[in-house]
Design a protein around this nucleic acid. Structure first.
Lengths: 228, 228
DNA sequence: AGTTGTGTACTTGTATACAAGTACATTTTA
DNA sequence: TAAAATGTACTTGTATACAAGTACACAACT
């Protein structure tokens, strides 16, 4: 599986390279500890060093590589990374759901239901690319609705890695555990219910359980036989 | 006041330009809504477009500018931005203090006390640059001690803007309300007390009050007469 | 006077060249 | 044989050139 070309529209060459390299790192196609150089990547992608340099800075920002004086070291995505990424999301999304639940959210819950419908259609069409896109869009809409721009910015900084990991995990899930996709969809409905319950404890518990499942799934799907 | 040259050691040209431009934007020397171009900035700084391009991407990541097809629009740092930046810090640091308080933190509290001593020395030497550096280091040590690398990464992504705003605010505070610096120092001691209390509610209240003061101070110090 | 077309000056994305630094391989020396 | 010195091939940071796109000023037309 390559990075979905439909997601690459209107991207610069540097952005495209960042997406392709990100996917390879997260899938383990590029080994942790290996050293990337601008010249090598430029040759590999048939581009000049300028967009490669841009791409490497993006990936360094995402914590997937560490830029050094000579070459960039691949840090990869460990189990701890995945757990911590979901920690950050739990912190942000729980806080924002609690805040949003203080006011009438009929409109938002309807929007979220529509996204769940699209997840269902993606499941029925056996389309993991669209499914993972809608899955993350569900959460994105919550953060957007909070109108907290700085938390949205933090959330967006996590998005490329989370979406790529989710894409890989979902593709595998569609192959191996297709029967459980419906359960994933149902769990998103629980979040809407928690939002409408206006109960902080219910929100907290629902989000913890939701992300507990998700990060276990993502982690299991990403890991090769030999644990990192 | 220019950006402290002692903080610019071992930086690339691009990093230096980012720091200088960040300070000018936060101080309001570069107006919100104005348009920056790579060519203009390159000429201003006597550099080529490459490091300027790097710098602009850093500032865009920090939400101070928005890169567009033709030029970069200055977004600046509004009151809402400052409030939201401290919201993010409250979310992160409260969560981490609660987590840390579950275990023995004698060592950390001693380190934090040392930093408070340095804040006191900086106050006595009337050195706002070192004072603001130690102030933020106090909080940084807490986040580092949590060993939560992804939250640390988020915290570090806020740091350049927060430190620059704090620097400007502290410089003004030293001029205008020097007598109240001691109160700032005392409030940091309260955080250590809250950590050692091992009481989640105490931690929550202490952090809220601490940052309530800080963001009001930062905001008041940054604003010109005409509100944005 | 208003609208349309053309030209110009600007922007950024990308390609390429150069300089300085780094790391390793090879040669020289003791 | 081991240590030191030298050479080479690589890296990145930065400078500069080129192409494509954009926005505005100016000229021509109605």
């Amino acid at each position: 599986m390559n990075y979905p070309t439909s997601w690459l529209t209107s991207m610069s060459i540097g952005e495209k390279i960042a997406c392709e390299v990100r996917l390879k790192i997260i899938r383990g196609d590029i080994a942790v500890g290996s050293v990337l150089s601008e010249n090598h990547l430029a040759k590999d992608f048939g581009a000049s060093r300028s967009p490669v340099r841009d791409a490497l800075r993006v990936l360094a920002n995402e914590g997937l590589i560490r830029l050094e004086r000579m070459g960039a070291v691949v840090l990869g995505l460990s189990k701890k990374d995945i757990e911590e990424l979901y920690d950050v999301r739990i912190l942000i999304e729980t806080h924002l759901l609690k805040t949003l639940s203080k006011t009438d959210q009929t409109s938002l819950s309807q929007e979220l239901s529509k996204v769940i419908d699209k997840m269902t259609m993606a499941m029925e069409h056996r389309n993991p690319i669209d499914f993972s896109y809608q899955d993350l869009l569900f959460h994105e809409l919550i953060v957007i609705e909070s109108k907290h721009e700085r938390l949205l910015r933090v959330w967006y900084s996590l998005k490329p890695v989370v979406l790529t990991a989710l894409l890989v995990a979902t593709a595998k899930r569609f192959e191996v555990d297709y029967d459980e996709i419906q359960l994933l969809i149902d769990k998103h409905k629980l979040i809407i219910d928690a939002l409408l319950s206006q109960d902080d404890h219910v929100i907290e518990r629902t989000l913890l359980e939701h992300f507990q499942d998700t990060r276990t799934t993502v982690y299991d799907s990403l890991m090769k036989e030999d644990l990192q």
